[in-house]
Simulated scan of single mutants.
Amino acid sequence: MVNAQKGKAKEVTVTKQGEWIVDSGASDHLTCSLDNLVNVKVTPSTFTIKLPTGATTSISHIGDVILPNGLKLLDVLYVPLFTHNLLLIHKLAKDAQCDVLFQPSQCVVINSKIKKVIAKGVLKEGLYYMQCKTDPSEVCMSVAADTSSGEIRTIRTDNTLEFSDKACVEFMNQKGILHKKSCSYIPQQNARVERKHRHLLEVARALRFQSGLPLSFWGECVLTAAHLINLLPNITLNFCTPYEKLHEEVPTYEHLKVFRCLAFGKDPSCHNDKFTARGYLSIFVGYLILQKGFRLLNLV
């Protein structure tokens, strides 16, 4: 996969950024793209790892990865000279409290508590690749089955085929849900969705213009915009916030920060030296979803 002779890396095969190979022999989760990581921390140059070719290379960063299907991978190592994303089975099973079942053509990840399939992998060229793209019909069924969202009687979508598969149709019929579709090329019939989409983009655009961040940080702007919108009073909700309507409690605002403000992240690798700097210079780029913390961009 990698030729590391004379300090140069020659790529032979490259895994796509969003593809993850399910592996049982690796020592840690590995990624070939720094863009996959959140909660990024810089590692000392003494941290090294041995590649499948036998070559040894250093690890420059470590962080977490949140896959589109909702799985969270902790302590993922970023290896610049590596060309694949590896998902370690026993670490995933321990951190996510799940079971992994291997079948002849696929592997499935099952939540140990609710006994529900939360991810799937397909067999290609002798390797299992995790499917990180979320199926819209599965999301629809998951939301409809969630009693905390209230009882759903009608769902309106465009004419996309994802919501017309057999499993989704049978689920809606079983739950008594009426599936309405908009007319082709008439986005006005999805006016509420279009307005929400416009509102989200306007707030995200304002955050990016105010912060001066490059366009590559559009994802952080959108996530932060959604977080702020959920905490703002809404006139259609009688000046309640969406958060209050969902959780039946008034939200707190002490944790809010100015987008792109100066911050100092804690460096856990310096605990052995009392005179080493304890933090690194960074900027604030958002809020964590599954943890009580912030997303920081390391400037060092």
Results as ranks from 00 to 15, higher is better:
A226Y: 03
E244H: 03
V250T: 15
V65H: 04
N39W: 07
I155H: 00
C168V: 03
P233M: 05
M130T: 09
L77C: 14
H29C: 01
M172V: 03
R192S: 09
L256W: 03
K94N: 12
S216W: 11
S149E: 13
P233D: 03
Q106I: 00
P251S: 04
K115P: 00
E19H: 15
Q174K: 15
M130P: 01
V117G: 01
T276K: 15
D75G: 06
L77Y: 08
L213S: 04
L73H: 01
H61R: 11
K245Y: 02
L290N: 14
D158A: 02
K274C: 12
V139D: 12
G121E: 07
Y128M: 06
D146F: 00
T13N: 15
P68Y: 03
L297A: 06
T157C: 04
S27Q: 13
V40H: 02
E151L: 08
A167Q: 11
H179R: 04
A204N: 00
D64H: 10
T147H: 12
P104L: 05
A9Q: 15
K124M: 07
L223S: 14
T15L: 14
T157D: 06
T43L: 14
P187A: 09
L262T: 12
V203M: 09
S45V: 08
N85V: 02
S33N: 11
F275T: 14
R205Y: 09
G25F: 07
I21S: 09
H61D: 06
L281H: 07
L288Q: 07
Q188K: 09
C140M: 15
Q174I: 02
F275Y: 13
L77S: 08
D95P: 00
N190I: 02
L30Y: 13
K196A: 12
F217E: 06
E151F: 04
I186A: 11
L74Q: 15
V258F: 05
I289H: 15
K116M: 10
L223P: 00
L237G: 05
Q17G: 08
L34F: 12
S33K: 10
G176I: 01
N3T: 14
F102C: 04
C168M: 04
P233Y: 03
S182A: 14
G150D: 06
L34C: 13
S45G: 05
L200P: 00
R153V: 08
F163W: 05
L201A: 12
S105I: 03
G286T: 01
A144F: 01
G286L: 02
K6M: 12
A191H: 01
K8I: 11
A206N: 10
F102D: 03
K133I: 05
T13W: 15
S33L: 06
T31V: 12
H90Y: 15
G286C: 01
V250G: 05
N85Y: 00
M1D: 08
I114V: 10
M141S: 10
S149I: 08
V203I: 11
K6Y: 13
A277L: 10
V65K: 04
T46L: 05
D135R: 13
Q17N: 14
Q103D: 07
G279T: 15
C32T: 06
L256G: 00
R195M: 04
I235Q: 13
V14P: 02
N272A: 10
N39D: 14
D135E: 15
L71M: 08
V122C: 08
V38E: 15
L161H: 14
H29V: 00
L215V: 12
F239L: 12
F284N: 01
M130F: 09
V76F: 03
H84T: 08
E202Y: 01
P242I: 07
I110H: 01
F217L: 13
